[in-house]
Simulated assay, not measured.
Amino acid sequence: MGFGGISIWQLLIVLAIIVLLFGTKKLRGMGGDLGGAVKGFKKAMSDEQSAEKQTSENKAEQIKNSAESKPADVNTTDKTKDNDKV
């Protein structure tokens, strides 16, 4: 079982050298920092998507409201002008 020509034993040796160089505490801290960064990135992406969804819902609501506020019959103003002339 290998990973692109690298055996499991070679990976274990590299891992052991990394642990000896950095120490377990520093590696644990780096892992925690990386996890926090990924979590923050996911939160920012979900916040951005919800903001975009809210914006599109607001635009749809504005369009709906503007369509409802327009007069349905333009001739109603003409009728009142005709009554004033009489």
Rank of each mutant, 00 (worst) to 15 (best):
I13H: 12
G29N: 15
G32I: 04
A37I: 07
K42M: 12
V19D: 03
A51K: 13
A44K: 12
G31L: 10
V14A: 08
K39Q: 10
A16L: 11
R28M: 10
V38E: 03
E48I: 05
F22E: 07
D47I: 03
D47Y: 05
I18L: 06
D33G: 07
M45E: 15
A37E: 08
K26H: 04
L15T: 12
G32T: 03
E52I: 04
G40H: 02
G31V: 02
K42T: 08
T55C: 04
I8D: 11
M30N: 12
I18W: 01
T24K: 10
S50W: 03
E52V: 00
A51R: 14
A44V: 03
L34S: 10
M30L: 14
M45C: 09
N58E: 14
K25E: 13
A44C: 07
L27F: 01
V38R: 06
I17E: 09
G23A: 02
G32E: 15
L34T: 10
L12E: 15
G36C: 05
I17K: 10
G32S: 06
V19E: 11
V14I: 04
E57H: 04
T24S: 15
L21N: 07
A16D: 03
G31N: 07
L21R: 10
G31K: 04
N58H: 08
G40R: 06
L21W: 04
D33W: 05
I13N: 11
K25Q: 12
V14E: 08
W9M: 06
K26L: 09
A16Y: 02
G36I: 00
G29Y: 12
K42G: 06
A51S: 05
K26T: 09
L12W: 11
I8M: 13
S50T: 05
I17F: 06
M45I: 15
K26P: 00
I18H: 02
T24Y: 13
E48K: 15
F22T: 01
